[in-house]
Simulated scan of single mutants.
Amino acid sequence: MRPTLTIGEFATLTHLSVRTLRRYHEAGLLEPAYVDPATGYRYYTSQQIPTAQVIHRLRQLDVPLAEIRSVLATDDPHRRAEVIAGHARRLEKELARTQAAVVSLRRLLNPEPPSIDVELRSLPRRTVAAITGRVEFGRSLAWYDEAMAELDAAFPPAERTGPPGGQYANALFTHGAGTMTVYRPVREPRASGRIEVIELAPAELAVTVHAGPHDDLDVTYGRLGDWVVTHALTVDGPVHESYLVGPRDTTDSDEWRTEIGWPVFRVTPSVGQDSGREIHTTR
């Protein structure tokens, strides 16, 4: 006696096309209960309807076929939950990246960009505790987190004298790999593990502050770069960042403040210069 449902009937009940059901069969996700050896017709049972619907929902979420097989192959509900939860977390991260890209694109497409405040600043020579490494751009965020965690562990808040910062070689952006240095100003810098005591060279910088999440930091970089090209002479040197407020201070990304410093060459001081600082606003 043949199974209850033809492939067409099963397709109607599950809202899956015949073509999709054939593809699920070929992929080993949902095999028919019976295949007529003479005609090749596929037949299904009503008990397979929930399985078909689960597969369909998982595919709508772009769960890879291998993970779907893992979900269907186990009778352990906890294992099933782990696989699905893991993919859900990846989807949430991808959604966050997509949303950040949309925000950045809207800023770029805004025909009336907001004003940008730029400060010309002279930084003195400073001695700091730092970690330096050559890093692939794709690993830069992970490397930064690891290095900052090591610095934080070595120097508790009572020893710190200012916000953390970083210097990033141009090659990191232009060639996909370059030298990164992250540091903390502390009362008594000392070496430990990867941590070194280094002197940061004096620098002349055009500085602006990026407000909010780091996802569209590149937009602020672009606007600062445009200002520098128009108003100053650029020089070779690492880009400077100072994390006035960041993820280590608050989970509210709207409160984050990242200071970006672009190396420049100042020919003459401007009127109103005070202690090496000049404020410029463009609109």
Results as ranks from 00 to 15, higher is better:
G166T: 03
Q167T: 15
Y168F: 15
Y168G: 00
A171N: 06
F173C: 02
G176F: 04
A177K: 13
G178D: 11
G178L: 11
T181N: 03
V182S: 02
Y183I: 00
Y183V: 00
V186F: 08
R187W: 01
R187F: 02
R187A: 14
P189C: 05
R194H: 10
I195S: 03
I195D: 01
V197I: 08
E199H: 05
E199L: 01
L200E: 07
L200H: 00
A201R: 14
P202V: 06
E204G: 14
E204C: 14
L217D: 06
D218C: 05
T220I: 04
Y221C: 05
G222K: 03
G222D: 09
L224H: 11
G225N: 13
D226C: 00
D226L: 10
W227C: 09
V228E: 07
H231N: 15
H231Y: 15
A232I: 01
L233C: 13
L233H: 15
T234N: 09
D236C: 01
G237F: 11
G237M: 10
P238Q: 08
H240C: 05
H240P: 00
Y243P: 05
Y243V: 09
Y243C: 04
Y243I: 05
G246S: 14
G246I: 02
P247E: 12
P247R: 07
P247M: 03
R248Q: 14
D252M: 02
S253M: 04
D254N: 14
E259P: 03
